[in-house]
Structures are given as structure tokens and as C-alpha cells.
Design a protein around this nucleic acid. Sequence first.
DNA 1: TTTAAAAATGACAAGGTTGTCATTGACAGC
DNA 2: GCTGTCAATGACAACCTTGTCATTTTTAAA
Lengths: 344, 344
Amino acid sequence: MKTSGKKPGNPPTIIDVANEAGVSMKTVSRVINNEVRVKEKTRERVQSAIKRLGYQRNVFARGLRADRSLVLGLLYETSQGDYPADVLQGALSECRKKGYHLVVETLHGPNKRQQAARFLSQTRLDGVLMTPPVCDNASVLKAFKEFDTPYVRISPQKPRKNECYIGIDDFAAAKEVIDHLIGLGHRRIGFIKGLDGHRAAGERFSGYCSALEDIGIQRDDSLIVSGNFNFESGVEGAKTLLATEYPPTAIFAANDAAAAGVLSYAHSAGVSIPGDLSVCGFDGGAISRMIWPSLTTIHQPIFLLGESAVSLLIDNNEEVKKCNEPVILPHKLIISESTAPLRS
Amino acid sequence: MKTSGKKPGNPPTIIDVANEAGVSMKTVSRVINNEVRVKEKTRERVQSAIKRLGYQRNVFARGLRADRSLVLGLLYETSQGDYPADVLQGALSECRKKGYHLVVETLHGPNKRQQAARFLSQTRLDGVLMTPPVCDNASVLKAFKEFDTPYVRISPQKPRKNECYIGIDDFAAAKEVIDHLIGLGHRRIGFIKGLDGHRAAGERFSGYCSALEDIGIQRDDSLIVSGNFNFESGVEGAKTLLATEYPPTAIFAANDAAAAGVLSYAHSAGVSIPGDLSVCGFDGGAISRMIWPSLTTIHQPIFLLGESAVSLLIDNNEEVKKCNEPVILPHKLIISESTAPLRS
DNA sequence: TTTAAAAATGACAAGGTTGTCATTGACAGC
DNA sequence: GCTGTCAATGACAACCTTGTCATTTTTAAA
């Protein structure tokens, strides 16, 4: 009358393993979960039984009892270009190393709060990564608080107290770009902004302004146009900037996609790159190498951001909730073919 | 002495709902699962109780009892470019509509069989989507059989009997590309191949050959170079093709990334596009619009492939296992700026 | 040796849901 | 009014694991 479950069709349970190893199921559980108080000999006996039977823990039962899923989530907004996809790769890599799995979900349209709540309640994740702009949506964050689900925000708009986030130093990176252009002799440098309200976009702009100020150049608003991180805004921006009375000799776009738009417009307008115009981007993704000429840009370690965010969630699960220091990862200026010394 | 669980801190259970609505928990279960035999009035009463309490079904308990997770998986190999990312978007979109969630996992390095088995056993998915080349890995597929997990392969190498797959008509699409070039007067058309052993790549090549044959042009092996779907292979391919004694007047690359490589090489070699050389790609993703000149290409409905694959898994779960007809989605020739009539 | 403390192990229940089977109620046909 | 049928609902167990607490074994100290 033992509940054995050892009917051949069904996968073996912890009870089968216990019988096989001659211990109680609780001891098997201890072995599975790497708990301490188990005699080495017993542990070996159980482990060999596990191997013999091909036992695999049932995630549902475990989740039900222990309320931990060993699954993380990645949450982002639809149509945000390559960025989330690259974060995903990094996150997956780290999840594999740590034995976790990853549920991906996108938010979309109105009612984000409700979507987030549904996501959390239906998946019971151990933690979630978010990219902008979702990670800046207060009502989404509120849903996380309600479900008490830890999260790490990647490059968020504003730090929130007692919350960990991860990113790069956008200000310094943008400054490096402009310093590079200044070093090439450029003085009239145009800027195509990123999304309004996007922290990183704002810092890149500040870096641009600051670098120019440092060499005593007044900010010239006719050299600054708005944008939204996409290709089309780069095309429009270039069109506007190149039509001014004293057009810039270099353009810095807030990301690679917009910079690609600048190149495209320049090509079609007969403006030679980098002969007539130097162009810089930001991100250093695949696109920056696939356009011609290849783009001088800042390489962001997006993959690494994903990896590190996962690592934070798993390893510092408790601390994540109350850590105040952001994790800042290194970036790198990639000098390529789209920038050249100013023609005299 | 009722087990109520209605301590304020804990989320409400099916029992709380049952008490609130004055029915048994089984009836609540029936309502949740949209079963038939429930009086309309009762159903409403239960639903309002659910809403009042903010009840959300516990996925672990459900999974444990019913052995269904309402979660699908997407499995692919690392570093396969944009393709899997686009499939992901489509899959996510459909999952949201159907109330499912999606676990993403990549396979990587040796031991794919074991990685797949671990994935399946640790997640108990209701179904999985796969893209090439994972979906052509026999030992991975064997793991799926073992776990009896339904799957849909997207554009796989070979059809397998009693298995559903989904894709586009690569042969016809490639033929359309070549017909377009022929219509522009081109006769010497180069081809840069995709990955060896990739069904779609092979069919694109066959389409190329067939279209030329149709107008009586002998296949010329000096116009055909190997490739592997990436940017670099496009650069190399173009270099080789343009260095021949009678270089082609048009080049068809097996995907957009390779075509981008062709453009890049051509630009740097001073070959004007499309003046001196027409170039076509295949995929129609974001990159085809971001390079200059924008690429004449075949638009593959990759997003739709993801959506449809999910829909197949959810709606035809039983039939997926024994359906023999592939699902073929429509493609579209996008004529853009990288092709022009042959200069006389 | 005896005793106390610590380590190792086990018995049992609980976690929330759904499947099985039983029960109740309503209604048609005679 | 009685019986048979079918629709609606409910009682209870089972799914598999882990937490709690009790019990047994081992080790160290007296």
C-alpha cells in the first residue's frame, strides 16, 4: 500500500528514489537541494539512485510547496529595436550557467499595470529584468511591489532609492565621442537626440554639451535636433541639419540606428562620408558594422548588461531589494570609417 | 475548521472564491477552465467573486495536477542573427493573445541532446518552437519524443513524416528575385549561397538556377560562391565575384546580411550601386532598409511565422503531432533602390 | 560507562488545483 | 404520481515536493 508511482509509464518521483536508496523522501529532498545535514555516504547512495532511475524533480510540485520557480523574466516594450534582443542573449547565457530559465514578455499599448500583474501572477518568477521604457513606468513597478517580485532595471530613467540598477556611464561615453571629433578638428558638431524622458538619451546629450563647453564652445541650438532612436529620425535629423546655413561638419546621433539614417540621407544627397561629414553613433551593435562606411560608435556591453542583471538577481536576491549603488559597466569608443579629420 | 487561507497576506485560493460565491471549489474550477456544465447564473456569481477577491489561479498547483503549464518554449542556436529575435516577437504576440507565456532557451556547443532534455524536464512546456539549425538536429528531436513534447519546426531542413512544419516557398521567392533582375536586362547574375545543409538556403539556390534555366541560360559556376548568411561572407563573396574576368552585373545574396556585405565591399571598391551593379537580398528585415541604397529583397513574414507556429501548437495540439502538410506563408518581393536596369 | 549535545534522518502535513465518481435536482413521459 | 434521464453540482483524493517537528544515531564531554 505504499504510494510508489513506479508504474513504468510515469516518471519516477522522489518516493521511488527514496525506496531505491533505502532512505526517506525527505532525505532525498535534502540531497536534491544541496542541504548540509546529510552524511556523505547517504548522499552518494541517493545520488546514484537518482541517476539509476533518471529522476528529475517536478518543477510544479516544487514551486507549489517552496514558492520558488527557478525562473526569471525579461520584460520590455514591443518594437524597441535590437537592444532588448541583445540583453536577452546575455540574460540567457547567465541563466544557463546558473540553472535558471527565462520567460520573455512584452508590454504593449495601454493597461501596462494590468499586463504586468497578470504576467507576475501567472508565472511566479523569482525575479525580473526590465529595459527602458518599461522600467520607468511607475505603475508597472508598483505591480512588482505588490507581488514582492525582485527586479533589476537596466539603464533606467531615474534611480529609485533602495533599488539596484545597472547601466553604463552614458555621459562619459558621449563626451569621449565628442572629444574624438574635436581631436579631428571638428567644431560645428550636430546632435540628434534620443527619446525624450530616456535617462541615457539625456546623459548623452549632457555629455555632448559638456565636452563642447570644455573647449569653450557655446551651445548652438541650431545644431541640435530631436529624435527617437530610430532610423527615420536620423534621416530627418540629417536633412534638417544639412539644410542650415552653416551646416555641421560632424553629426553625433544618439544611437546607431539614427546614425544609419544620417548616412543614408547623406549618401542620397551626395554628401561624402567621412570626407564632407563625419558621423558617430552609439551602441556598437551589429548594424554599426554592416553599414558603409562602418560607424565610429560607442560599444555598449549590452550582452554583459543582461548577464550581470541576471547574476545580480540570482546571487544577491536579498540585497537587490535595498542596494543603492548602481552597477556601471565599461563602454568603449570604437573608431571606424565614418569619422575623419576636418578638411581644411 | 474550513481551510480558508483567507489570512489577509496570502493570495486568495479557489476555496476562498468558492466560499465567497457559495459554491464548491470544483464549480469554481469549472468556471475557470470554461467547462460547459455550469448554469449561467452560477457562472456569473463565481466570476464576480473572482473579480471581487482578485483571485488568480496558482500555476504551480494547476501544473502539478493537470500536467499542463500554459507555457510554450522557443529554442534556437546562439548567434543566428536577427531571425530568431523576429520569430520571438511574433511568438510573443500570439502567446499574449492566447494567454500563454514563453520560455526562451538557446542551445550552444556540444551535448545539445542533453541540454534539450534538461530544458524539457525542468520546464514541462506544453509545446516548443524551433528554428534552424536546432530544428534539424536529430538528437534534439529525439529528446522531444522522449518527453512527448509537441513541437513545430520553422523552416526546417527536411520534412519528417507525421510532423508539421512551417515556412515559406523559398524556391518560388528566389525565382521572383531572379526574374526581376532578368526583367531589368541582367544576364550575368552572381549568387552568394547560404549555409550548407540549410534547406531554405538550398531552395533559394535552386530557384536561382531554375529561373536562369527558364530563359535558356546555362549555369555558370564562376558566378556562384559559398557563404554562410553573415555579413563577412557577403564581403568575401563580392570580392571574389567582382574580381573575375567577366564579373556579374547583378548579385543575389541568400540573405540581407550577406547582401549588406556586398554593398559594403562595392562601396569601398568604388563600384556604384545600382549603377554598376544591382544587388538583391533575402529576408526583408530592418537591416534591408537601414543600409544604402535600400535593398531589393524578399520580405519573409518572420513575425507571422512565429505567430502561426504558436497558434498551431495551441490550437491543434493533437494534430500537430501527425500533420503532414507544411504551412506555407506568403512572401513578397520588395523592389527598392539597389537594383536598376542594366546599363547598355 | 553515563550524559549531554549535536548530527542525521524520518513521519507527516500542507500547498492549490483538477480528475473521478457520487449526489442532488429538474423535468419529460407514462 | 412515479420512474427514468440528464443537467448541475459537490466530496474527496491525488498530484509531488518541502517545511516542521520529532526521533534516532553519533560524537564529545564528564
